[in-house]
Design a protein around this nucleic acid. Structure first.
Lengths: 152, 152
DNA sequence: TATGAAAGACCGCTCCC
DNA sequence: GGGAGCGGTCTTTCATA
C-alpha cells in the first residue's frame, strides 16, 4: 500500500483498463510489446499499491430512464448539522454524490432523476424536508461534454 | 437497443457487477439461486439494451497523488462561446468533467489537482487564460461522503 | 530484480434438455 | 430457465538475463 511511482508502461495499462477492464493481458502485451506475464506483474503491483481499486460495469443512467442530472448547492442553518444532513441525504437514492465544500455552499450534491417532475418531487418532498437546510440552489445539467478520469 | 424493463434479478446482478465487474457468473448464480446460464442471458440482454455499457477499473486518484478535488462555476461573456470553451477545457487534463447548466453558471466543471498550488496553477495559467470566460467561482471539496450510482 | 515462456486452473460461452 | 462440454483467458511457476 506504499506509494509506487508508475512508469509509462503502467500508465498505458491504466489507460487501456480504464477504457475496458476486460482487455485480455495478451492483447495489452502485444500492444505494448512486452509479455503477458509482465502485464500481470504490473497490474498486480498497482493493485497492491492501491492504485487499481477494483473493476465495475459502466451503467447507462439514460437507458435506465434517468434523464435528468442536476447539481444542488445546499446551505445549512448551522455548520454543525453537516453530519446529520449527509446521513439524511444518503437515504435518498436520487442523491448520487455529495461534497463538503468551501465557498458558496456548505454541501454540494449531484442528483439523478427520471424526469423534471421527478426532480421537483425529490427537491420538495425529500431534500427540502431536511430541517437543517436553509436554502438550496439548483443547476440543471443540459449536457455533459466532458466525462473522464485523471490520468497523469 | 430498445427499452428493456429490468426485474429484480437484473437489478441484483447490476448491483453486484457495479461493485465488482469480475464477479464470476457461478457465484452470482449461487447468490441469487439461479443457474450460471441465466446470469449470462440476463447480462447479455442488458448489454444489448445498452444498460451495461462496458467495464472499467476504478482508480484511486489519491494514490496517484491527486488530492485536491474542486468544482468551478464558469460564466461566459457570450453564450455563443460555449463550444469553443469546452474544446479548450478538454485540452486541460485536470478538467475531468464539464456540464452545460442552467442557473448561476454557464458551464460547471470538476477539476482534479495534485495540490492547492497545482490547482492555483490550473486556474491562473490554464482556465483563466480562456478569453471567453468572464468570471469563475471555485468550490473546493474537502470531503466526498456520498459517491455512488443510480440504481432503480 | 524484472522479464519471458509454458502448463494448469478457472471462467464464460454455446448447445441441448 | 437449467445443465454439460469446449474454447479462451488468467494465473502460476520456472528459467533467464
Amino acid at each position: 500500500m506504499e506509494n509506487y511511482q508508475i512508469d509509462n508502461l503502467d500508465k498505458s495499462i491504466l489507460h487501456a483498463l480504464m477504457d475496458n477492464a476486460r482487455t485480455p493481458y495478451a492483447e495489452l502485451a502485444k500492444r505494448f510489446a512486452v509479455s503477458a506475464g509482465t502485464i500481470h506483474v504490473r497490474v498486480e503491483k498497482m493493485k497492491q499499491a492501491g492504485i487499481i481499486q477494483g473493476t465495475k460495469v459502466t451503467i447507462s443512467a439514460k437507458r435506465l430512464g434517468y434523464d435528468v442530472c442536476c447539481f444542488i448547492g445546499v446551505n445549512l442553518k448551522h455548520a454543525r448539522d453537516y453530519p446529520s444532513t449527509i446521513e439524511q441525504l444518503q437515504g435518498f437514492e436520487e442523491v448520487v454524490e455529495a461534497y463538503y465544500t468551501t465557498g458558496n455552499y456548505s454541501i454540494f450534491i449531484k442528483v439523478m432523476a427520471r424526469t423534471i417532475d421527478h426532480l421537483q418531487d425529490v427537491l420538495i418532498n425529500k431534500i427540502q424536508t431536511i430541517e437543517a437546510i436553509q436554502s438550496t440552489e439548483t443547476l440543471i445539467s443540459l449536457q455533459n461534454p466532458i466525462a473522464r478520469e485523471v490520468i497523469p
